[in-house]
Amino acid sequence: MGKTIIKATGLVKSYGEGEGKTYALDGVDVEVHANEFLVILGESGSGKSTLLNVLGGMDDVEEGEILFEGKDLAKAKARDLTKYRRDSVGFVYQFFNLLNDLTVLQNVMIAPGARKHKDRALQILGRVGLGDKLDKFPAQLSGGQQQRVAIARALNKECDLLLCDEPTGALDAASGKAVLQLLEELHGEGKTIVLVTHTKEIAQMATRVIAMKDAKIIRNEENPSRRKAKDIDW
């Protein structure tokens, strides 16, 4: 097991009050280790996406601690969270979240700090198989292509941690598989991947699986029998 990158303890997040109070996270403890492929598995409403958003610095918690490089993200100021999102983590969304008014190349280069590195962006786009789509706009791409652009954008930030929220959720099986294969390759190159999904089959790719139900972690175990992305069907 690699070094612990993120250590979150006692995370609590709820919505509503009184009898209508619903927990999205109810005392969750989780660690992310370097170079692991962690899958957080759960049904809709289990709290998995909320956990990922919190780890990604995009949502806050009412209680708990999230340590990253010695700093507690749960108590960090907005400026520090911005820095964290900029320099330390790449996020891939279910619905891609590309900027429609920018081309593929511009979307990949959008991140601050990544703007000066056009060569790197071109290389990454070539890597994800979109070297010939540089001037296209997102609306002109298929879902799978858009998701690959989103991954390229995350990669262009040169951070080792990639958080992916249902990256195949909006894709057909073939496109989804292609995306998973890409993530697999990146993991092989040393990236740390945290992937959220409700699909059990995808969890078979993981080095470790955390299962969530009703805002709690119900299982946290290594995956002894990893499968390749190309062998997974769902």
């Binding site: 990604g56 400026r79 911005t82 996020f91 900027l99």
Partner: peptide
């Protein structure tokens, strides 16, 4: 809201 939020997610601050 969404594109601006995306920008914030990839690391842009309010000042940007």
């Amino acid at each position: 809201k969404k594109p601006l939020s995306i920008l914030r997610c990839v690391g842009y601050g309010t000042k940007d």
